[in-house]
Design a protein around this nucleic acid. Structure first.
Lengths: 203, 203
DNA sequence: GTCTATAAAGGGATAGAC
DNA sequence: GTCTATCCCTTTATAGAC
């Protein structure tokens, strides 16, 4: 016999989500598109199909607590995708280029609305909302580490791999923002090609 | 005999600024730090030493018009700095690395508050405030062109210079955001070194 | 051009019935 | 856990005296 929680953990990803999870996902998506300040708790609860009372039941810390959880959700979401892309081919340069192209196509498909799930929220909170800033810093750090391990596995030395991984994430972040603002895939496609060249220069 | 406007144009940059200019500069600085939504018109007028009536006198289009002008101000401000840095030494790789270091030190000196003067505002407006998005797109385009010309002057071919310039701006943007969130100069310093290496690989 | 006051709407958060 | 109603505050924007 399983408890409900155990059943939910086993469930791969489909089926009716719990209220708390629906709220987190809705908050993550809205803040990704609009940023922290522009995403109201009323809007979030409405679009999540929950009531304001439920939102404050699960998140007594209010909007700040919810935003921090939303960032952690976006963190895991992107880390999963990045991990899969990196595992899908042996050479790191090609994998990163694939990643940039996938980001470009995904952004285009969303009508240039869905940029990085962390950036917009983090920038609105930088400097005066420590919990949110910390969650964002941890997300970037995790993504850098995924790239770092891939580069190490390809035989690149520690110091070089660390600096290179940092630059790969920075460039993808910046290019995604540039692509979103320009409403064009080009900045991301260019970044992918240039990052591949840079990585290959270490072989 | 000169009109007041002609005198102001001649004045290099000091002295008491006009009300309109004070409002634009204050809006630019506040939105750079807090984003579009978090920067209220009351706060802007207060910190600019103006009244709300004056703000709406000069900007009948309200907050949106003011934000677009603030972005154009930040655009010119950064373009001037970037242009000077690029002119200060002949090799583009070293100039870009200098630029990254200068950004890192400036960001650190502002207690990690002053990131890119365009990013925060643009992200909050992407998708539903066309005037602001257009101003941001024009800013990025101008900065890319400055780098492009520098690379062309160093003998890099058109197509390569275009893609490289795009990536340089994307990487600096992304690294500045990463540095701000991590409260560390390292992402920008790493980006500067890696961009220099990438640029030198074209010689 | 500048100022104050105010309108009209929306924000985050809470209380208490169910 | 869920729902509704409401409090209190701030927001953008306007009106009209000076």
């Amino acid at each position: 016999m399983k408890t409900k929680a155990q059943h939910d953990e086993d469930t791969v990803e489909q089926g009716p989500l719990g209220t708390r999870e629906r709220i987190v996902r809705t908050a993550s998506r809205l803040m990704q598109r609009q940023g922290y300040e522009a995403s109201g708790v009323k809007q979030i609860s409405q679009e999540a199909g929950a009531t304001l009372g439920s939102l404050y039941h699960f998140f007594p810390g209010g909007k700040q607590q919810l935003a921090a959880e939303a960032i952690r959700h976006g963190d895991r979401e992107f880390a999963d995708i990045l991990g899969e892309m990196l595992d899908s081919r042996p050479d790191p340069a090609g994998a990163i280029d694939d990643c940039a192209v996938a980001l470009a196509e995904g952004l285009h498909a969303s009508a240039w609305l869905d940029g990085c799930p962390v950036t917009a929220t983090a920038l609105g909170a930088a400097g005066h909302l420590p919990d949110i800033q910390r969650a964002a810093a941890e997300a970037f750090q995790r993504w850098r580490e995924l790239v770092y391990e891939k580069l190490r596995g390809a035989g690149i030395a520690e110091d070089e791999a660390r600096e290179l991984a940092s630059t790969v994430i920075s460039t993808l972040e910046g290019a995604e923002m540039a692509a979103q603002v320009a409403r064009s895939e080009e900045p991301l496609r260019a970044a992918g090609r240039q990052l591949a060249r840079l990585i290959n220069s270490y072989r």
